[in-house]
Structure formats: C-alpha cells, structure tokens
C-alpha cells in the first residue's frame, strides 16, 4: 500500500517539475525556454506612419481673442514671507538682505486676482504650424529669487538661464516629457538650455543651496498661452474662432482646470472670469 502510494507520488511530483518547465520562463534561474523575438512593424519601417498630418484646419472668419481674470474667491491671504528680511542663515548678505523673500506660491492682488497662473490651450490646434518667437524669455536669479516665477518657453528653442547674484545657485529642473538637468550656476554665470518636447503641465525647478527657491516652466509648441499679471489678468490673442479647451494651472492649486471649454467668436474678444475658493489652494 505504501509502496503503491510512493509509486504514484513520485511520477506526480515529477509531473509538477516538468509541468512547470513548460512555463515560458523561469523567473529565478535565467534558464529561458520557448522565448520569441519579433520585429516591430515587419522590417524597414519605424512606428506606423499616417496620423493625418498636414490637414489644415478650416479657419473661417477673423481670429478672436480670450481675455480674462483668475480670481481668488475669499479674503486676500496673508502668506508669511519665506525668509524675513535679514534673517537668512544662508548667504545672508545676498538672500533677503534688502527685502524679505516673499512666498510666491499664491500671489493675490488688491482686486483678488491671482498672479502667475498659466492659462493655455490643452493642445496645438489641428493642422496649424507656428514659428517660435525670435526672442525667448530668460530666467534670472536675483537676491535668491528666481525671476520670473512663471516661465514659458518654446519647445526646441534655446533659452538662457542667468545668475545675477553674488552667490552660486543651481537649477534642478525635473520636467516630465523632457530630460531632467541640474546646472550649477556660479555668480554671473549664464547657461543655455532647450527642451525638445512640449509639456502638458508646468514643472517645478528648485535650487538645492537655497531650498525656498523655485520656479515653474511651461514648454509650449503653440502661442496660445498666457501667464496672469499681478491683478490676475491675461490675454490670449489671435485665436482661431471656434470651441477651444484651456488648461489653468496654479502651483498651489495644481490644475484648476484640466480643460475648460470656451467658444471664441471671430474678430471678437471673449471675456471670462474664473473664480476659485481658498480650499483649492489648500487654505
């Protein structure tokens, strides 16, 4: 009886081993069996082509524009400065020496408008081609503050990073669709960089030496973008008439709008007013 059981169990156990050899791969040992290689898209071709490019959008009528205000729906917040005047423990002769370093994560004007908000088309309008402007804005580091705080640059175009301070800084940029970099910037330094791809959202760059420093960069491939001014106002001119989707990004509120629809009528300025409660900004 016992012998009989053993006789059955041994082959059954063997089966277990054999059965598992049939699995495609042994994840532990590297003994690989029954694997295959194939070639993408047959040969002599890259990724599938097509995609209907060069379809020029039928634009009827004159271009319109979008003007508007981004508003803070609540009492003006009073954010304490990041570094009060004369209190910096790092490079105190330069950082926060003449003036306090403000908390720019939410700047609300007297009229309740929010500054440094990115408003832009979620994607390039179909079939339209744009030439980047001849000059790109540059980024400066002045009194341990990145200026501007909200930067818009074109994909594929060089732009300059400068350091006007008398101390070293660094720019640690972590984009999503592009490669990250981290450039040391000695006093008076200038570095030229560019990004290959447009980004869906602005991304943050920091300085490791002065941990309060940060700025946001949006990389675009179309001109339909604006950053709000101190009163939260913006204007996006030359929009093809029709229905568009705009994204609204503020660093504390992140995506205030993923894609809000606006109909732009030909030859006219469409005016909007978008209001957001303090809760959107973690207040």
């Amino acid at each position: 009886m016992r012998n009989l059981t053993a006789l059955v169990i041994v082959p059954a156990a063997l089966l277990v081993m054999i059965g598992c050899d049939l699995a495609k791969i042994d994840p532990g040992g590297g003994a690989v069996s029954q694997t295959t290689v194939s070639v993408r898209g047959g040969v002599d071709s890259g990724p599938a082509g097509g995609g209907g490019d060069e379809v020029v959008a039928v634009v009827t009528g004159e271009p319109g524009s979008l003007t508007g205000t981004i508003l803070f729906d609540g009492p003006k917040p009073n954010l304490a400065p990041l570094v009060a005047k004369g209190t910096s423990r790092v490079d105190s002769t330069v950082c926060g020496a003449a003036e306090a370093i403000p908390d720019e994560s939410l700047l609300v004007g007297e009229n309740g408008g929010i500054a440094n908000v990115f408003v832009y088309l979620t994607k390039k309008p179909k079939g339209m081609k744009f030439d980047p402007p001849e000059t790109q804005p540059f980024l400066d580091q002045d009194a341990c503050i990145f200026k501007p705080h909200a930067l818009v640059v074109w994909a594929g175009v060089d732009f300059e990073l400068k350091n006007s301070d008398k101390v070293a800084h660094n720019i640690d940029a972590k984009p999503a669709a592009n490669s990250s970099f981290n450039d040391g910037m000695k006093p008076g330094a200038s570095v030229v960089r560019s990004f290959r791809n447009a980004e869906a959202l602005p991304f943050q760059s920091t300085c490791a030496i002065h941990p309060w420093m940060r700025f946001f960069t949006l990389v675009v491939e179309h001109p339909f973008v604006a950053v709000t001014d101190a009163d939260g106002k913006f204007e996006i001119p030359n929009l093809p008439p029709g229905k568009h989707k705009f994204r609204v990004f503020q660093e504390r509120g992140s995506q205030l709008e993923r894609g809000i629809e606006v109909v732009v009528s030909p030859g006219k300025a469409t005016t909007v007013e978008w209001k957001y409660p303090p809760a959107k900004f973690g207040l």
């Binding site: 495609k24 029954q34 694997t35 295959t36 290689v37 194939s38 070639v39 993408r40 002599d44 890259g46």
Partner: peptide, 8 residues
C-alpha cells in the same frame, strides 16, 4: 519572453 526588435 517575447522580445520585440524595434529597428529604429
């Protein structure tokens, strides 16, 4: 187990 050669 099924590798793909993407010649590009």
């Amino acid at each position: 187990a099924e590798l793909v050669v993407w010649p590009e």
